[in-house]
């Protein structure tokens, strides 16, 4: 077993949509240890979204290898990827992406439903996750009845309820005011202390500054890989 949780080995991702193939990633190699707090930075078109999709197992590399916790993602089927996402990956989006017709509790329970957990157990787990994030009195509210910060916390609860190995956050504070954004960012710090690896995708240097390590991406390549804080 590798000492790294995430290991990208010379990964290429090529899209064959137009006349000429587009190389969104061109030989990216990246290693991330458990409970690291990494920010991936880059402008739009830099390949950071493609990188995030790969890291989140939504996509497979065209070339190269991606090992997540020692298992090779490159050769897995769609359904196997779905299972890996369900068990090992959590997603937090800029637009929260909660299902509007469901209560906070039902939203948080959804990954557990897909994992096939029994009703009693998943209700307990989801309630606990919401309580841990200070939403104990909001569990039966619909997303439309919650503030942006509360919605994002529900989304975070949903992403960690299945106890994933890595948490991928795509511009998680992009739709929030600066005060709420700060709260959310400190939440991520807390999660890394609990052993979850957080990978932040952002173009905002201030948000990225909360991480311990910054990976800058441009034109499908890694430009810089800086450690800015002390890694435990």
């Amino acid at each position: 077993m590798s000492e790294f949780l995430v290991e990208l080995k010379d990964v290429w991702r090529t899209y064959n949509q137009g006349v000429e193939p587009v190389h969104a990633l061109q030989g990216v190699s990246l290693k991330i240890k458990e409970s690291e707090y990494v920010a991936i930075m880059g402008t739009s078109g830099s390949g950071k979204s493609t990188l995030m999709n790969l890291l989140g197992c939504l996509d497979r590399p065209s070339q190269g290898q991606y090992l997540l916790d020692g298992t090779d993602i490159s050769t897995r089927s769609e359904d196997e990827l779905a299972e890996i996402r369900n068990k090992s990956v959590g997603f937090v989006f800029q637009q929260f992406n909660l299902l509007p017709s469901m209560s906070a509790l039902d939203n948080v329970m959804l990954p557990l439903v897909y994992a096939g957990m029994g009703k009693e157990q998943r209700t307990m787990r989801a309630e606990q996750a919401l309580k841990d994030l200070g939403l104990g009195n909001r569990i039966h509210h619909k997303p439309s009845e919650l503030s942006g910060g509360q919605q994002q916390r529900v989304a975070i609860a949903r992403s960690i309820v299945n106890r994933p190995r890595i948490l991928l956050a795509d511009e998680p504070t992009g739709a929030l005011d600066s005060h709420t954004a700060k709260e959310i960012m400190s939440l991520f710090t807390k999660l890394t202390e609990e052993g979850i690896t957080v990978i932040l995708v952002t173009h905002d240097p201030e948000t990225a500054a909360c991480a311990r390590r910054i990976v800058k991406v441009r034109d499908g390549r890694i430009l810089e890989d800086l450690i800015i804080g002390k890694v435990q």
Partner: peptide, 16 residues
């Protein structure tokens, strides 16, 4: 479509 995307991201399989 977006809801389906979210469901897939959090681990829904084809059959689900």
């Amino acid at each position: 479509t977006r809801e389906i995307g979210v469901r897939k991201a959090i681990g829904a399989k084809y059959s689900q």
